[in-house]
């Protein structure tokens, strides 16, 4: 019986080839499925960009950039929203970066990785990263805009809330950048008699700066595009002048888009699309900056 098996198998070549046939058919269907998914993902991105540019084309001029909001869609512009975004996002990014680098240095250089403290703080950071952004709006409403600080719907309120929101991204990327610094650098510094802080300040941090910069730029671009928490913090207000201080009322680019998008007149949809183009160009510039920093500083350890 067993000696015949091979011959039998060879005889039933038709059977084998039909099995191969179904396998090949399945392979093809599978690959087509994968292509379809890629098409959906990238096709949507391309459609989104084209649709936005086409809708925006009548408003893509310098008047739109320099004008202030107006009830007439053809006169409206985004100067106040543009400067509002800068006033909100830059301090949020800087404060968050400072806190994130301190946290990352402490967790990576000062405590043992398997210590309870490191585990507890890491779990907190992971959990914080998964909190929906609208919940940060509630936090801002309860403690920053009203409640303990009672700052009202101002730039500093928005800045603090966005700073807290991007904190987990900033911490995670700073930690990764610090972890990527080879330990030989630290050992060399210690061998030459430097203390822990001297080693961090003169060796570890300078070596980690490109990584930290890349990660924090991504965090800042996240804050630049964020809308949900600011909806609750007064950013939908009709603001017709540039902010002059941190306790001024404000609006930001994403909320200008939101507001235009909810207006009935079609001309406001053009304005929304044009504001999207401005926002996307800003974010693209930030991302290019991150890529340039990453490439410039590519070192082989």
């Amino acid at each position: 019986m067993t000696s015949q098996t091979l011959a039998e198998t060879l005889d039933s070549r038709s059977l084998t080839s039909s099995v191969v046939g179904t396998r090949q058919t399945k392979d093809i269907f599978f690959l087509v499925g994968l292509w379809l998914a890629l098409l959906i993902a990238f096709g949507t991105l391309i459609t989104l960009l084209i649709d936005t540019f086409v809708t925006a084309r009548s408003r893509l001029n310098t008047d739109f950039l320099t004008a202030f909001p107006s009830p007439f869609p053809e006169d409206t512009g985004i100067q106040a929203a543009f400067f509002g975004s800068l006033w909100v996002v830059v301090p949020a990014g800087l404060v968050s970066l400072f806190v994130a680098v301190c946290t990352a240095v402490f967790l990576e250089e000062f405590v043992k990785q398997d210590s309870r403290f490191a585990g507890f703080v890491s779990l907190n950071i992971q959990t914080l990263a998964g909190v929906p952004s609208i919940v940060f709006g509630i936090l801002g409403l309860a403690f920053v805009a009203r409640g303990a600080l009672a700052w009202g719907f101002t730039i500093r309120t928005a800045s603090v809330v966005l700073g807290m929101m991007i904190l987990p991204i900033m911490i995670v990327s700073s930690r990764e950048a610090i972890r990527a610094v080879p330990s030989s650098l630290r050992e060399g510094a210690y061998a030459l008699g430097s203390t822990r802080w001297q080693c961090i300040r003169r060796q570890v941090l300078p070596a980690a700066i490109p990584g930290i910069a890349t990660g924090s730029i991504l965090g800042i671009s996240r804050a630049l595009g964020e809308s949900a928490p600011l909806i609750m913090l007064g950013a939908l207000a009709y603001v017709s002048s540039n902010p002059a201080g941190f306790s001024d009322y404000y609006t930001v680019l994403p909320l200008a888009i939101f507001k235009y998008a909810t207006e009935a007149q079609v001309e406001f949809q053009y304005a929304a699309a044009a504001a999207i183009v401005v926002l996307l160009v800003l974010m693209l510039a930030l991302n290019l900056l991150a890529i340039i920093i990453r490439d410039r500083s590519r070192k082989s350890w």
Binding site: E226, A261, L280
Partner: peptide, 11 residues
């Protein structure tokens, strides 16, 4: 695609 702001997707 991951970096496109949600308000842009909403629009």
């Amino acid at each position: 695609l991951a970096g496109v702001p949600t308000v842009v997707f909403g629009f």
